[in-house]
Design a binder for these strands. Structure first.
Length: 577
RNA sequence: CGGGGUAUAGCGCAGUUUGGUAGCGCGCCUGCCUUGGGAGCAGGAGGCCGGGGGUUCGAAUCCCUCUGCCCCGACCA
């Protein structure tokens, strides 16, 4: 019989909040004795923290296995050759931990495992008869984040599940994608999380198809998402699109013409003020440098440029940044505040946002210090090289799908599903022979879940002033038994008997056998977040009763010891169903 | 990687301005007492004051330097 007494449990709880922790999940995990920091972004999991991790992993395993996933163990330390072959050795940059062996051969600590898994499959898969293949692993991954923070939320060493799908054709890939999407919905639901799947940008992993991120909605989330109140549209702001929202031209603008003197105006606000027009009537002209190429991006004055959209539609670039003022000056012979799209060299690409293209009359920089041009129209006065969606979406804008109002929220990204297409199978030559004997590239998908981050996210959504409130399926233990005094023999013997019985019933139970005052035990049990607590005290025991407390509802009921057992068993079974 | 902050006992902090050999609360150990929401009393253990260098009779304190950590920004599955 597995048993655990709190007196023996390595569960160092803290009364005070360690100064280094900012977000609730980090504070509570430290205070409740779940994790300890080893270095920035690197943590030790203590017994209770590790139990939660293993519960989450187990739920993931079950749902992956149901879909035909096969678990493997892949190397964390990976040879540079594979990464050079895929082209990502150079692309990944300083975020990858790199090391050398005694022979000076290069390796990295895997930030992800596409290369290594594709290498396996290309060696071992020959025939279409072996496909589809769904392989997954749950392991540590390493990313040398510029700024690790928020405890387990953004670590440099973290636990991740990745499943890689290999299919012989597009319908197969779409089916694998759909399987994983549905599995993820089940996983996060079972973990007790409120989440939303959102359309997302594929980022460095790349790939040809769509991608969805699974976001746990929480104010502490690092990601911003928008979703529609009317329909099911939801997207990461990096990706979010909406209908262009046209605004009428300023009346005051109609009476102006040509070049206007606008001395000293460095910002959109200053120009709008001096001309007494709305920012919506201005063109924001930004010069970017993508690798070694300069180009110009135009959005309306009230808009923010979405650099991810810029990168996706004009790049992709390894390095994309705004041009320095000196660079702008030497490129356009004009200071940044007064640049505009008219009269720019033909070989410089001009990318205009959809809204810029549709405005009747606009103001832009004259490419001449202290002057702006008024009554400019896109298509007449200048012709952009490309016209596309390049801006950030904000709250209240019309949904692309249904014209409903979009709303913003914060989210913690706990999972992402990617349709990779042939990106890695081509670069790493993962092929199979089809039923006609022709060699074909595998179609791949990759599906990640941040396991350690999911633990943090679960806390962000389940806590109160007293501590964590674990959802039953991922709680380190289901139930804690608290004998109020160790001096009273009947209290102790009842506690021991209940403990034995519950444990035999398969309820994961700990017994708080510490010789502490009741208050201390209650505080600790609330902090750690055991879903159920049985309190055994002299007074109630005199009436033949013990108390059953529900951590989430705060509800307490007096029942006989016998009933307490049956009740706890029933509650746990119901919650795990 | 830029900007800011910080480093003193396991945790939270004071002491640094004005140099004189280290302190408070919590936790920990012993004993008494107490036992339904982090009790009380008494006694105790625990610190190369982040590292290195300098100034000085003397440095937690002043100067130089390195490092760790935290925050903001940039960046990022």
């Amino acid at each position: 019989m597995k048993e655990m007494r709190v007196s023996q449990l390595l569960n160092p709880t803290l009364r005070e909040v360690p100064a280094e922790a900012e977000v609730v999940s980090h504070q509570l995990m430290l205070r409740a004795g779940f994790i300890r920091k080893a270095a920035a972004g690197i943590y030790t999991y203590l017994p209770l923290g590790w139990k939660v991790i293993r519960k989450i992993e187990q739920i993931i395993r079950e749902e992956m296995d149901v879909k035909g996933g096969q678990e493997v163990m892949l190397p964390i330390m990976q040879p540079a050759e594979l990464w050079k072959e895929s082209g990502r050795w150079d692309v990944y940059g300083p975020e990858m931990f790199r090391l050398k062996d005694r022979h000076n051969r290069e390796f990295c600590l895997g930030p992800t495992h596409e290369e290594i898994i594709t290498d396996l499959v290309r060696s071992e898969v020959r025939s279409y008869k072996q496909l589809p293949l769904l392989l997954y692993q749950i392991q540590n991954k390493y990313r040398d984040e510029r700024r690790p923070r928020f405890g387990l939320m953004r670590g440099r060493e973290f636990i991740m599940k990745d499943l890689y799908s290999f299919d012989k054709d597009l319908p197969g890939l779409l089916e694998s994608y759909d399987k994983m999407y549905k599995a993820y919905e089940r996983i996060f639901t079972r973990c007790g999380l409120t989440f939303r799947a959102v359309e997302a940008d594929a980022g460095a992993i790349g790939g040809t198809g769509g991608t969805h991120e699974f976001m746990v909605l929480a104010d502490s989330g690092e990601a911003a998402v928008v979703f529609c109140k009317e329909c099911d549209y939801a997207a990461n702001v990096e990706k979010a699109e909406c209908l262009p929202r046209l605004v009428p031209t300023d009346d005051s603008l109609k009476v102006m013409n040509g070049e206007i003197h606008t001395p000293g105006t460095k910002t959109i606000d200053q120009v709008a003020n001096i001309l007494k027009i709305n920012k919506t009537s201005l063109i924001k002209t930004m010069v970017y440098k993508g690798d070694d190429k300069y180009f110009v991006v135009l959005v309306r004055g009230d808009r923010e440029i979405n650099e991810i959209k810029v990168n996706n539609s004009l790049g992709p670039f390894v390095n994309l940044r705004m041009a320095q003022p000196e660079e702008v000056l030497s490129l356009l012979k004009c200071e940044p505040g007064f640049v505009g799209p008219i009269g720019i060299d033909n070989d410089i690409v001009i990318a205009a946002d959809l809204e810029v293209a549709e405005m009747e009359s606009l103001v832009c920089g004259a490419n001449k210090k202290d002057y702006h041009l008024v009554n400019v129209k896109c298509g007449q006065d200048f012709v952009p090289t490309k016209t596309l969606d390049l801006r950030m979406v904000v709250t209240g804008e019309p949904c692309l799908k249904c014209k409903g109002k979009l709303q913003e929220a914060r989210g913690i990204e706990v999972g992402q599903v990617f349709n990779l297409g042939k990106k890695y199978s081509e670069s790493l030559k993962a092929t199979y022979l089809d039923d006609k004997g022709h060699e074909q590239y595998c179609l791949m998908g990759c599906y990640g879940i941040g396991v350690s981050r999911t633990m943090a996210a679960a806390i962000e959504q389940n806590y109160d002033n007293n501590g964590i409130i674990w959802p039953m399926p991922i709680a380190p233990y289901h139930c804690i038994i608290v004998p109020v005094s160790l001096k009273d023999e009947e209290v102790v013997s009842t506690a021991e008997a209940l403990y034995k019985e519950l444990t035999e019933l398969g309820v994961e139970t700990v017994l708080d056998d510490r010789d502490e005052r009741a208050g201390v035990k209650f505080k600790d049990s609330d902090l750690v977040g055991y879903p159920l607590r049985i309190t055994i005290g002299k007074k109630t025991l005199a009436e033949g009763k013990v108390e059953l407390n529900n951590r989430r509802t705060g509800e307490a009921q007096l029942v006989t010891a016998e009933d307490a057992c049956a009740l706890v068993k029933a509650i746990v079974d119901e919650a795990l169903k």
